[in-house]
Design a protein around this nucleic acid. Sequence first.
RNA 1: GGAGAGAUGCCGGAGUGGUUGAACGGGCUCGCCUGGAAAGCUAGUGUGCCCGAAAGGGUACCGGGGGUUCGAAUCCCUCUCUCUCCGCCA
Length: 423
Amino acid sequence: MIDIKQIIANPEAVRTALLKRLESVDFTELLQWESERKSLVVAMENKRNERNKGTAEISRMMKEKQDATTARETVKQIGKDIADLKNKHDDLATRIHDLLVNLPNIPEDIVPAGGKENNVVIETFGEKPGFDFKTKDHVDLATDLKLVDYARGTKMGGTRKWVYYGDGALLEWGLINYFINHHIKNGYAFMLPPHILNAESGYVAGQFPKFKEDVFHLDAEEDATHFLLPTSETAIANFYRDDVLREAELPKKIFSYTPCYRKEAGGYRTSERGTIRGNQFNKVEIFHLTTPEQSEVSFQEILATAKQLLRNLGLHFRVSRLAADDCSASMAKTYDLEVWIPSINDYKEVSSVSTAHTYQAIRGNIRYKDAATKKNKYVHTLNGSALATSRLFPAILEQFQQADGRVKVPEVLVPFLGKEYFE
RNA sequence: GGAGAGAUGCCGGAGUGGUUGAACGGGCUCGCCUGGAAAGCUAGUGUGCCCGAAAGGGUACCGGGGGUUCGAAUCCCUCUCUCUCCGCCA
C-alpha cells in the first residue's frame, strides 16, 4: 500500500508516476477526505480529554460522597458526541483505505510507462542454438524420452496437470536441488512454509484484493479464508508480519522452495502445451528484507543470482525491464528473465525479480528500528525466482537436443542425474 | 469432532470496574564504582495517531471486533489463536 503521507507530501509527483500504469489518477477527493479525517481526530481527542477529566471528577466526588448525578449526565452526553464523531471518522477512514489499497505501487523512474508492449530487453545471454537436423518440440521430446506423462496427469487431475517420472522426475528434482545448494552456499536461510495460507497473508503480499480469483480457495466461496499459495513469496512476505527487526540483522536473505498453485483460467493455446502453463509448478524463490538504502544493492544481487543460474545451465535467455503496467500491482520495478524455447520461437519467463519498496511492508506492518534515530521504519521487500522450473524443463530439452533424439544433460545437473544424456 | 483452561510490555508474571501505560522480577541502555571486568548502586527503557518550529502536550492501544457503563486490562457477546484431556487419523 502506498503511504498516504507520501501522497500528501507530493501529490503531483505520485500522480505523475502512477500515470505510467493507470489511465487516470486524481487525489483531490482523497486529500480532502484525509484533511477532514484529521480534523475529526482532533475534535474526537478533545472530547475524550473532556471525558477523561469528567470521569476523574466523578471518581473524586464519589470518594467524597458527593452527588454526581449532574456530572454523570454531562459526561454521558460527551460520550454520545464522541460516538458520533467516531462514526464519521470511521466512515472516512474506510473510504480512504479502500482507495489506497486499490492503488498499485509507485513505479521507479527507470520503469517505462505503459503495458507489455513497452517492455525493454536490456541484456541477452548466449545465442539461439542452430540445428542442422529436424528438431522436436519439448512435448515430443519429453514423451519420447519418457520424462513427462501429460495424459496420465490430466487423467488424475484434469487439464493443466502433468506427471514427472523416471529421469524426468530426476531432472525436475535435480534443478530444484541445484538451486537450493547454490543459495545455501551463498548464506541464505532456507524456509519451507505452509502451502495453505489465510486471507490476511494474501492481503499483505498484495495478491488480495485484486487477484483473488487467480488462486485456489479452500473454503466455500462466501467465507473464503484459506487458499493455496500462488508463489512462496506470499508466504515469506508474511513471515515477519508485525515484527520490528534490528537494523543490524538487515538485509535478511531467505529462500524457499514450494510448488505454486494457480488457476490460470482461460483457454488453451498451442504455445502453452506441455508444462509451459500449469495449475501447479515448482519454484525456488529468493526474498530480501532490507533498509531503503540497501534495497537497490539487494535488487541487483537477486538479479545477478538468477542470471548466474541460467548461465550455469548454459541456456540462451534474455533479461527485460517490464513496463509499469506489466509489473504486479505490488511492485515498483520488475525485471523478467526469459528463456528461449525454439519450438515456440519465443522467450518464456523463468524468473521475475521485483522490488516492492515499502508496499508490502506497510500492509504487513514490517519494520526495523533505525539505529541512528531509534525510530521504527518500514523495510523494503524484494523477491525473485531463482528459478521456476516448468519452462526451464522444456528449454533444456529443446536447446540441448541432439540429432539422434537424445538430450544432453547440462553439466551442473549431471551429479544429480548420474548420466550425461537422456536417451 | 467433544470437554476444559488460557491470550497482559523485550521476557517471566501481577492485576477482576475509578490517577494502571500498567505492580514485582529478569533483560537491555546510560552513568557511578573498577587498572579492567563482575558484583553493587543511580537513572532510563513500547507503539500508532494528533497539535507544536522545538521543548512539550493530548489521545489510543493489556490477542481482534462489538457491547454494557459517567468510567473497562478488569463485566458481557463474538472471532482468532495457544495449551491439556478424549475421539478420529496419514
